[in-house]
Amino acid sequence: MPVDTTEAIEDVLEYETIAVVGCSSTPGKAAHDVPKYLLDHGYDVIPVNPYADEIFGREVYDSLDDVEESIDVVCIFRPSEEVGEIVDAALERDDVAVIWTQQGIRDDDAAARAESDGRTVVQDRCMKVEHRRIAP
Rank of each mutant, 00 (worst) to 15 (best):
M1Q: 11
P2A: 12
V3G: 11
D4I: 06
T6C: 02
E7V: 09
E7Y: 05
E10K: 15
V12T: 02
L13N: 00
L13W: 05
E14N: 13
Y15S: 05
E16L: 14
T17Q: 07
I18C: 02
A19E: 04
A19F: 06
V21I: 10
V21P: 00
V21S: 04
G22K: 10
C23I: 01
S24V: 07
S25T: 02
T26N: 12
P27N: 12
G28W: 05
G28H: 08
G28V: 09
A31L: 05
D33P: 01
V34G: 04
V34H: 03
P35C: 05
H41C: 04
H41L: 02
H41A: 08
Y43G: 03
D44L: 05
P47K: 01
N49L: 06
N49Q: 11
P50T: 08
P50N: 03
D53W: 03
I55H: 05
F56M: 07
G57L: 07
G57M: 11
R58H: 14
E59S: 03
E59P: 08
E59L: 05
Y61K: 08
S63P: 07
S63E: 03
S63Y: 06
L64P: 10
D66I: 01
D66R: 13
V67W: 05
V67K: 02
E69M: 07
E69I: 11
E69S: 11
S70D: 15
I71W: 02
D72G: 03
V74W: 00
V74I: 08
I76N: 07
S80P: 11
E81R: 15
E81A: 12
E82D: 12
G84Q: 00
E85T: 13
V87C: 04
V87H: 07
V87F: 03
V87E: 10
V87G: 01
D88E: 15
D88K: 14
D88C: 05
A89V: 01
A90K: 06
A90G: 12
L91I: 08
E92M: 08
D94I: 09
V96T: 09
A97W: 00
A97N: 14
V98P: 04
I99N: 10
I99A: 09
I99L: 11
W100C: 13
W100I: 04
T101F: 01
Q102D: 09
G104R: 03
G104Q: 12
G104C: 06
G104V: 09
I105V: 15
D107Q: 10
D108Q: 14
D108H: 15
D109C: 00
A111C: 14
R113Q: 12
A114W: 04
E115C: 09
E115Q: 14
G118Q: 08
R119W: 01
V122A: 07
Q123D: 07
R125N: 00
R125E: 11
R125A: 03
M127R: 02
V129Q: 14
V129T: 12
H131M: 04
H131A: 11
R132M: 13
R133F: 01
R133D: 04
I134D: 09
P136K: 14
P136S: 15
